[in-house]
Structure formats: C-alpha cells, structure tokens
C-alpha cells in the first residue's frame, strides 16, 4: 500500500525527472538508475521468453503464452505485409519482434508501483524506465538505423546502388542532385525523430501522471488513474510505432530493389520514373 501511495501522492509539488541520475560507479563507468532498471527488464524478458519458448505447442495454450504468441504473430504479419516478398521479410522478423518486446516491456516498466520515487538512493529514484532516458532511446534508434542501413545496402547489392535510390535521375542534373542530397539529409533526421518521439512520450507521460497526482491532492489516485491508463496505451503504441516506422524505412528500399530489373542502371538520366514526369513523344517508358 505504501508503495502505491508514494507512486500517486506527491507531497510537495509534482516530482519530475528528465535526466537519469548516477547510482554508482563501476571502473569509471557511470551506472544510472535507468540502466539498472533496463537490465532488470532484460533479465526478466530473457527468463519469460525462454520459459515461454519451451512451452509453445502447435495447439494454442491459454494464459501468458497465448498472449505472447498473439503479439508476436501480429508483428510478424505487419512485417510480411510491409514487404512485397514474404521470403525476404522472414529474414527481418527476429530483430523487429525482439525490438518490439524490448520497447514494450521497458515502456510499461515505468508504470509499475516500485518504479520511480518508490525507492530512492541518495535522493534520486532507484529505478527509472529505460525508455524514459534519452541516452537509451538514442542508442536504440542508432542501433536500429545501422541495422536498417546495413540491410538496405546488402539488399541493394552494392553501396553505389544503394545511393542511387536517393536520386530520381542522373546526379549530374543539378536539380536531381539537390533533391537527392536533401533526401539523404532527411534520412539522417530519422534517428533523431525516432529517439525523441519515444523518449518524450514516456518521460512526459510520467510527468503528466505526477502533475495530476499533485493536482488531485487527497483524491490523487482517482485524478491520476486516467492518465495512467493513457500511459499504458501510449507505451504499447510507441513500441509499435518505433517498430513499424523502422520496418517501413527498410521496406521502402527493399521494395524499390524488387521493383526494378537486376541489371537496370538506375542512374541513367534518360527517364525519371517518379514525380509524375513522363517521357515525351508518346513513347512508353
């Protein structure tokens, strides 16, 4: 009861945390509270999924295993519909399903009663959700985008062919060159937008729960519970969106590859394929 009370009833102003705080130092490495909780979540995930994997049967079972199966099936179906080629899509299933569950568990971890201000060490909360920390979401976004880029280059065949996807026509044409470079620049902003979206949603969700618990005063659990439920929905939604957006970034390149002949030179400046530009003289492209 005491744990739940400290979660909902804030005595002096809403207590908000944006940055992670250091708990202890290990050989020059700073171990923060979000890292600690992230590791706990990872260990919990490994135990849960190893346990579930040993109990999977062809005939569906009831309970937690069925829930895991349904969610995994949903993500697998999403990946397979995003790619035109199902065989190609199968290769990317393990990473993205793992990513989804990792984000889902870490997003929801901050909603548990023993997270945040329930336990404190040196005035800082002992456990904070991993995704409520910009360092963690930035790392997740960078690792995922590196995976997407490496897979894109491998699917395209060579680095030069991968770069040619950015240009609609020949790069010697100044307009196509500028458009292609802009396209490349907007490609790099994906890391920032992915990490900021996840971090802000989780961190601000917790701040809003804290603020409404403070405003509610004596009836704090009642005033905060609506935002608590929104946080639950939002945690699942953000995990889904992080996954689906990275799948789409990969699927754009992969589907572009399969749309062309293997030996077709995409950098040939004769016929741009998109942007509603059609060849003159009525000839068929």
């Amino acid at each position: 009861m005491n744990l739940i009370a400290t979660k909902f009833i804030a005595a002096t102003g809403p207590v908000t945390h944006i940055a992670p705080s250091a708990l202890f130092y290990f050989h020059g490495l700073t171990i923060t509270n979000s890292m600690l909780y992230g590791w706990i979540c990872i260990v919990f995930m490994i135990i849960l999924f190893v346990w579930a994997a040993h109990r999977m049967t062809i005939k569906p079972k009831k309970g937690i295993i069925q829930i895991i199966e349904v969610i995994a099936d949903f993500i697998i179906n999403t990946i397979e519909t995003a790619f035109e080629d199902k065989q190609r899509a199968r290769k990317y299933v393990p990473y993205f399903v793992t990513l989804f569950f990792f984000l889902l568990f870490n997003n929801w971890s901050g909603l548990l009663p023993f997270a945040n201000d329930a336990f404190t060490a040196h005035g800082a909360p002992l456990l904070r959700p991993l995704t409520g920390d910009l360092n963690a979401t930035l790392a997740a976004a960078i690792v995922t985008m590196i995976y997407v880029y490496v897979s894109s280059i491998r699917e395209s065949g060579s680095f030069r062919k991968y770069l040619s996807h950015f240009f609609v026509g020949s790069p010697l044409n100044p307009m196509y060159l500028v458009l292609g470079l802009l396209e490349m620049l907007s490609d790099f902003t994906r890391v920032i937008s992915l990490s900021l979206r996840l971090f802000l949603n989780i961190a601000i969700g917790e701040i809003i729960v804290a603020v409404f618990a403070y405003l509610g005063h004596a009836i704090a659990p009642l005033s905060a519970v609506a935002f608590y439920l929104i946080d639950m929905f939002d945690g699942a939604l953000q995990a889904f969106i992080f996954t689906i957006l990275t799948i789409m970034y990969l699927a754009i390149v992969v589907n572009h590859v399969t749309a062309h002949d293997e030996h077709e030179d995409l950098t040939d400046g004769a016929t741009p394929e998109t942007m509603g530009v059609f060849p003159q003289n009525g000839e068929v492209a």
């Binding site: 937008s193 900021l196 979206r197 802000l200 949603n201 961190a203 601000i204 939604l237 969106i241 689906i244």
Partner: peptide, 17 residues
C-alpha cells in the same frame, strides 16, 4: 492512422519538453 498520429504528436511533445 495511429502511426501518423504519432508522427504529428512529436511536435507537441517537443513544445512540452
């Protein structure tokens, strides 16, 4: 539709942050 909601939502969250 929810994916696009999340894309738009980022700008509100940036203002909040």
């Amino acid at each position: 539709a929810l994916v696009f909601v999340a894309i738009v939502e980022l700008f509100a969250l940036l203002a909040f942050a």
